[in-house]
Simulated assay, not measured.
Amino acid sequence: MASIKTISKILIIIPAYNEAGCIEKVVDNLEKNYPQYDYVVINDGSTDDTRKICARRGYNFMDLPVNTGLSGAIKSGMRYANYYGYDYVLQLDGDGQHDPKYIEDMITEMERTGCDIVIGSRFKTKRKPVNSRMIGSQLLTYAIMITTGGKYIGDVTSGMRLFNKRMIKRFGYDINYSPEPDTLAYLLNCGVKIEEVQVEMHERIAGTSYLDFKNSIWYMMKMFFSIFIFQWVRKREKGDKK
């Protein structure tokens, strides 16, 4: 029987904004240890040397002229994947936190369950640590449970996600779709099936997260508003649950 890797086309998309300190280690690891997977770096209008590094090293990359944010970078990658006919897209952060060794487990889970999205979860079989960031994550998990009839997603903020062909088209061309927890709630209420696979994540190789204390508070406010209020007025595609 043929393995998953020989019967499916998989593209890894790597959104990168000012990841000059990380991007070489991330891509070199893929090229050396996971050559069975195609990849594309989405340089999201970086102001550091991310683009120069990608060009100098001969990486496969798209160069967005301005910073569009994570949603815009993901949308660009999804359109690339759709154009070239990929069956799956794996979102892999450019900061070195996500380990590609779990990709095969995620694909196996998608094939086994027939789900639309698989999340690489730090908390599928492990408990969340007690700190301010994880408390915020847990609150978002509960918010999604409340608004989706009890559907549980343990790691709502994980950026390591596998998408099938249907989701590639939706995230690529529908304005309602962004890689955030509120979209997970919306998708669950649309009948989209989401599963999780336990993974381990590394510490960021270089740089800093944009979610400082002030931005984290604002982020949580936006997510709660969207989960509890805005998702109910978002347009649902034909055939989705009402």
Rank of each mutant, 00 (worst) to 15 (best):
114 G>R: 07
193 K>C: 13
24 E>H: 03
175 I>P: 08
86 Y>S: 02
64 L>V: 13
138 Q>L: 10
238 K>E: 13
160 M>S: 01
132 S>K: 08
134 M>K: 07
70 L>N: 06
93 D>S: 12
76 S>F: 07
87 D>R: 00
203 E>C: 07
85 G>K: 15
208 T>M: 09
224 F>T: 11
167 M>G: 04
81 A>I: 04
223 M>L: 08
151 K>I: 10
17 Y>Q: 02
206 A>Q: 12
125 T>V: 15
30 L>F: 05
104 E>Q: 10
140 L>F: 04
193 K>H: 14
69 G>H: 10
240 D>E: 06
190 C>L: 06
80 Y>I: 11
226 S>E: 10
216 S>R: 10
5 K>P: 00
3 S>W: 01
111 E>T: 14
169 K>I: 12
144 I>P: 00
231 Q>L: 13
2 A>M: 07
121 S>W: 06
68 T>W: 05
230 F>G: 04
10 I>C: 00
239 G>K: 13
15 P>A: 04
91 Q>R: 06
92 L>T: 02
90 L>C: 06
33 N>H: 09
212 D>Q: 12
183 T>H: 06
123 F>R: 04
160 M>Y: 07
84 Y>R: 12
162 L>K: 00
114 G>L: 08
6 T>E: 11
23 I>P: 00
17 Y>N: 01
204 R>C: 11
241 K>P: 01
174 D>T: 14
81 A>V: 05
59 Y>M: 10
126 K>H: 15
77 G>R: 01
122 R>M: 12
122 R>K: 15
99 D>S: 07
95 D>F: 03
43 N>C: 15
117 I>V: 15
172 G>M: 07
235 K>G: 15
32 K>R: 09
201 M>E: 14
132 S>G: 08
82 N>Y: 11
77 G>M: 05
218 W>S: 12
49 D>Y: 11
130 V>G: 03
121 S>A: 09
207 G>H: 05
223 M>N: 07
148 T>S: 08
238 K>V: 11
84 Y>S: 12
185 A>K: 05
132 S>E: 08
17 Y>P: 00
186 Y>L: 13
1 M>Y: 05
94 G>F: 03
18 N>Y: 00
118 V>G: 02
98 H>E: 09
71 S>M: 09
11 L>Q: 01
42 I>T: 04
101 K>V: 13
216 S>L: 15
85 G>I: 06
233 V>C: 09
232 W>N: 06
226 S>G: 03
187 L>K: 03
96 G>R: 01
233 V>N: 11
105 D>L: 08
33 N>C: 05
121 S>I: 07
22 C>S: 09
82 N>C: 10
174 D>S: 09
40 V>D: 04
133 R>F: 11
82 N>S: 14
25 K>T: 06
183 T>A: 10
213 F>L: 11
93 D>M: 08
101 K>C: 11
139 L>W: 01
42 I>N: 02
209 S>F: 12
